[in-house]
Amino acid sequence: MSRTFQPGETFTHVRECDRYRPIYYAGASGDFNPIHIDPEVGKTAGLGGVILQGLCTLGWAVEAVAVFVGDPGRIRRVRVRFSKPVRPEDTITFEGKVTSVQDGVLTAEVSATNQRGEDVLKGAVVEASIG
């Protein structure tokens, strides 16, 4: 890989959860839990409507690092806690910071906040092979 990476480098990735993204993601992933596709069920569950699949948000955190290192095939690990639901028409900003570059593995901490400044992920860590 031609580029070198240093601890402390930062990167940003912004994604909008458009109105039908939970439905598109349901189709692609098979996660048709009604809390993701049926607003009435979301309300009954106390969620105030549909919420995006957490694993789609995880995918966006992975994507943030994949774009930064330039190759999605280099992602080696992802770990996240889902702290707040993402809803249709939310805009999520992923801010990544390289915390270590060691033995050909880059480790980045990634925060994900909505347009109100609330964290939707906590303690997200993504590792990528850069050897």
Binding site: N33, I35, V41, T44, A45, Q53, G54, L55, L58, G73, I75, R76, R77, V78, R79, V80, R81, F82, P85
Partner: peptide, 17 residues
């Protein structure tokens, strides 16, 4: 109880493409 269930945490390790 599916209606009360949320996905709390997730870790994935990828050893190959």
């Amino acid at each position: 109880n599916m209606l009360m269930l949320v996905h709390g945490e997730q870790e994935l390790e990828f050893l190959d493409v």
